[in-house]
């Protein structure tokens, strides 16, 4: 599998480290124990398209959100995790 790093270009999977599901969102600190349990432990395991966090450990050290098909390794999109997080952040005046 090869990942196109938005900063470095196309690199082999050996340069990256998988860091988990990119779809989970950290709950509010006051959330219930059940919500926290789900955030920490419960994961979907889709056969097909998924959104994952990868870290370019042997390159530019950027965190990436990789949209890929976990059955075929086809990659649909790679985005800097920083940009994904900034886009999610509520706009403040």
């Amino acid at each position: 599998m090869r990942i196109i790093c938005p900063l470095c270009g196309e690199r082999g999977a050996e340069e990256f480290v998988y860091h988990g599901d990119a779809t989970v969102r950290r709950p509010h600190p006051d959330s219930s124990a059940e919500t926290w349990n789900a955030y920490v432990h419960l994961r979907d395991n889709p056969a097909g398209r998924h959104s994952e966090l990868w870290y370019h450990a042997a390159g530019c050290h950027a965190w990436l959100v990789v949209e890929r098909d976990v059955r075929t390794h086809e990659i649909f999109a790679v985005t800097l995790a920083q940009d994904v997080a900034l886009a999610r952040r509520p706009v403040t005046a």
Partner: peptide, 9 residues
């Protein structure tokens, strides 16, 4: 480029 050479960063 930042990469690996002989498995070394």
């Amino acid at each position: 480029a930042l990469t690996l050479a002989g498995h070394i960063g």
